[in-house]
């Protein structure tokens, strides 16, 4: 009875490390496939459309909403201290440093990552990947690598848009509706937000998240059990694992970037 529990734990551990190993090996093949995409950039453009352009709506709407809500809530707290001019820096810093990269990555995995997993998983289930191999076309280079690269390019761009739209949203609420001073909103923001410390670090975060989110999405699809149920499970796993990975990585990156202050 007790031994069985231990055995179960051991099996879980082994499966976990086995998957990590397979994912790492897959990543190396993926990275090896990237240089070949220079010649076939057409494939990447196609994926940039379905991964990046089609995610625009949800990213822009969420960004604006998050910015407006932040502006409203922060204003209610700050007005007690007569510090409503600090609305600009507060909103900008929280968006650029944390909320922008993390929320964009989570939305991205829900909107685009799951779709990539489902697409590749179904290709596998319907034997399209095996057919490619039989025609001497490497499915990793042809199918996986363009999607990975498109995700890696898209997420940082989407994150920048999320933060920018969020700041505009809080500007709209704070300055337009609640009457914070227009000049103070921007000038305080500019004096508090640092290009290197804040903006660059936010971009680095979003690149790291784009890497992880695209890697997980492509790998889960490629590694899916080729059945209807297997694909649906893989899709769920993509969203869940991306959320864990992004949130964990965000903590590590934040500690590395801002821990010394």
């Amino acid at each position: 009875m007790f031994l069985e529990k231990i055995q179960k734990l051991g099996r879980l551990g082994l499966t976990f490390f086995e998957r990590i190993g397979r994912a790492s090996f897959f990543l190396m093949q993926l990275l090896a496939g990237l240089p070949g995409l220079v010649v076939h950039f057409r494939l990447v453009v196609q994926q940039l459309y379905s991964i990046g352009v089609l995610s625009l709506a949800i990213i822009l709407v969420s960004g604006a909403t998050v910015g407006m809500v932040l502006g409203l809530q922060m204003y209610n707290t700050l007005i007690d201290f007569g510090a409503e001019e600090s609305l600009g820096p507060t909103v900008a810093l929280s968006l650029v440093r944390e909320l922008g990269p993390v929320l964009s990555a989570l939305l991205f995995s829900g909107r685009a990552g799951s779709a990539v997993t489902a697409e590749i998983g179904l290709m596998k289930a319907t034997d399209q990947l095996s057919v490619m191999e039989m025609m001497a076309v490497d499915p990793i280079k042809r199918v996986a690598a363009p999607r990975f690269l498109a995700g890696l390019i898209s997420l940082p761009l989407l994150t920048a848009m999320f933060s920018a739209v969020g700041i505009l949203g809080s500007f709209f609420v704070g300055v337009g509706m609640l009457g914070v001073d227009d000049g103070a909103f921007w000038s305080q923001m500019q004096s508090k937000v640092d290009l290197h410390g804040d903006i660059y670090n936010g971009v680095i975060k979003s690149i790291a998240f784009g890497f992880v989110a695209s890697w997980i999405a492509v790998f889960e699809g490629y590694d899916a059990v080729p059945t209807t149920e297997g694909v649906s499970r893989a899709t769920t796993r993509t969203v869940v694992h991306t959320a864990f990975a992004v949130l964990g990585l965000d903590f590590v990156l934040t500690a590395l970037m801002y821990g010394e202050e």
Binding site: Y49, P156, A160, M161, V165, M189, D194, L195, I199, V203
Partner: peptide, 20 residues
């Protein structure tokens, strides 16, 4: 358009939001 929008957003963050 997507890429241009993304770069424009980055540009706005750098010029309008930060202390550059």
């Amino acid at each position: 358009i997507f890429i241009a929008l993304g770069i424009a957003a980055l540009f706005m963050l750098a010029m309008k939001v930060s202390n550059l």
